[in-house]
Write a protein that binds this DNA or RNA. Structure first.
Length: 260
DNA sequence: ATGGTCGTTTAACGA
């Protein structure tokens, strides 16, 4: 089973790119972020024409996440538990039933948090604490799961071309990295880092200042795997090539392959 | 130190 996460930066602007990607690369499950669309305005035919079941959790103009699956997902839920007043569409879960067993897919678009310090950074840290609580629940239930999406977290210096440029940014601040390590310390696996240790592997390049042409990137799109799912991983790769195409997103897909 | 680029929505705001 192949699962891909992709921050598309607007599903309408990326209609052609995402449509081509689904047909050519055919993930079994696609986890999308920043659809920037309401559920009603989402172009459903992008999924239907490529034979995907579609589940969206959108809002007008900003944020928004989606799950696309070749086979039906069970128990789809929307929103991250822990704050009933949170109106931002950043989280969706569904259970995939594969030959290797059931996996709970948690798709997320973690808050950017800039400027830091400030209320937006407070919201990011509170959101990360809620994500940790959700991970604890799933671990306690012994439910195999993965959390994937745009985490807006640069885990370590090797995950940025210029780490010094991010040291005081909400994506790279020590408190952000501590919250990330709390997730790892629960026993979750950073899938890409379990496969590749070296520097120079990124998933985002800013549109500005020729960041892509200078390979001035950061790795912020991740897969975190529960122990049972980590045991099933056979590969994890970044589809860097997509960033060089016409009218790209500023993020590229990250892929996870599980046995069966 | 500033501005540089996109997407959504149409004057800024978010990233």
């Amino acid at each position: 089973m192949k699962i891909a996460t992709f921050n598309v930066n607007g599903i309408k602007a990326r209609y052609g790119a995402v449509s081509d990607w689904l047909r050519e690369d055919a993930p079994d499950i696609a986890v999308l972020q920043e659809i920037k669309s309401t559920d009603e305005a989402f172009p459903r035919e992008i999924a239907e024409e490529a034979c995907y079941e579609l589940h969206t959790h959108g809002q007008k103009g900003f944020n928004g996440v989606a799950l696309l699956s070749k086979t039906p997902l069970e128990d789809v839920t929307r929103g991250l538990p822990g704050d009933d007043a949170d109106e931002q569409a950043r989280y969706i879960e569904g259970t995939a039933i594969g030959a290797g067993g059931a996996v709970r897919i948690c798709g997320l678009y973690l808050p950017n948090g800039n400027p830091a310090p400030g209320p937006k950074y407070d919201y990011k840290l509170a959101w990360m604490a809620r994500l940790e609580a959700r991970a604890r629940e799933l671990l306690a239930a012994e439910e195999p799961f993965l959390m994937t999406g745009d985490f807006n977290v640069i885990p370590e210096d090797r995950d940025a071309a210029r780490p010094e440029a991010w040291a005081k940014d909400a994506l790279g601040l020590p408190e952000t990295r501590r919250a990330w390590r709390r997730l790892l310390n629960l026993g979750l696996t950073d899938a890409f880092r379990a496969r590749v240790q070296g520097p120079g592997h990124y998933s985002f390049w800013d549109y500005q200042a020729g960041a892509w042409s200078r390979n001035d990137g950061i790795r912020i799109d991740h897969f975190l795997l529960s122990p049972a799912v980590a045991d099933r991983m056979t590969d994890c790769t970044i589809q860097t090539e997509l960033r060089g195409r016409e009218k790209p997103s500023d993020h590229v897909p990250v892929w996870l392959t599980l046995d069966a």
